[in-house]
Deep mutational scan, measured.
Amino acid sequence: QKEELKEKAKEAVKRGNKDKARELLKRAGISEEEAKKIIKKIE
């Protein structure tokens, strides 16, 4: 489940939808700070 949400978040970032990505990562139980780092890494 968590990995699936991370994959979806990756796709969202690639489409330029960072808010959606952050939302998905939060749903995966990832903190706001972690989510920001992950999104930065994907960009």
Rank of each mutant, 00 (worst) to 15 (best):
K36E: 15
I39R: 00
R22F: 15
N17S: 05
R27I: 12
E43S: 08
K37L: 10
E3L: 09
K10P: 02
S31H: 05
L25F: 03
E7P: 02
A35F: 05
E7Q: 11
E7A: 11
E4K: 10
K41C: 13
K14M: 12
R15L: 12
R22Q: 11
E7T: 08
I42Q: 05
A12F: 06
D19Q: 09
E43K: 05
E3C: 09
K36F: 07
E23K: 02
L5C: 06
K6E: 10
E4G: 08
K40C: 10
I30D: 01
K20T: 09
L24R: 05
G29P: 00
S31P: 08
E11R: 07
A28I: 05
E11S: 06
E23P: 00
A12M: 12
L5D: 03
E23A: 03
G29N: 01
K6I: 15
K14W: 05
K41I: 12
E11G: 04
R22H: 13
K18V: 14
K6H: 11
E43Q: 08
K10T: 09
A12Q: 09
A35S: 06
E23F: 00
K36M: 14
I42A: 10
K36T: 14
I38C: 04
A28P: 00
N17Q: 12
I30W: 10
L24I: 09
E32H: 06
E43C: 08
E4A: 11
A12R: 01
V13T: 03
A35M: 08
I30T: 02
D19I: 09
V13M: 10
G16Y: 01
E33A: 10
R15A: 15
R27G: 13
K10V: 11
I38E: 03
K6F: 15
E7V: 09
K8S: 07
I39S: 00
A9I: 14
I38P: 00
K40Q: 13
E32V: 06
A28R: 00
E4W: 12
I38N: 01
K26M: 13
E3A: 09
E23I: 02
A21V: 03
S31W: 04
K41T: 12
K37G: 07
K18C: 13
E33G: 07
E34I: 06
L5S: 04
A9T: 04
R22M: 15
V13A: 08
V13F: 05
R15Q: 14
D19W: 05
V13S: 02
V13I: 12
K2R: 12
A21D: 01
K37F: 04
K20F: 13
A21Y: 05
R22V: 14
L5W: 10
S31I: 03
K26R: 11
A12W: 05
A9W: 06
E11H: 06
R27T: 14
E3G: 07
K8G: 05
A12V: 02
K20I: 12
D19L: 06
V13Y: 07
G29C: 07
L5Y: 08
G16K: 03
K41H: 10
K2A: 12
E23V: 02
I39Q: 00
K10N: 04
Q1R: 12
L25D: 11
A12G: 01
E11D: 08
L5N: 04
N17V: 03
K37D: 12
E43F: 07
R27Q: 15
K41L: 13
K41Q: 14
E43A: 08
N17F: 11
R27N: 14
K40D: 15
K6S: 07
E3P: 04
I42M: 12
R15P: 01
A28G: 04
L24M: 08
I39W: 00
I42V: 09
E4Y: 12
K18F: 15
E33Q: 08
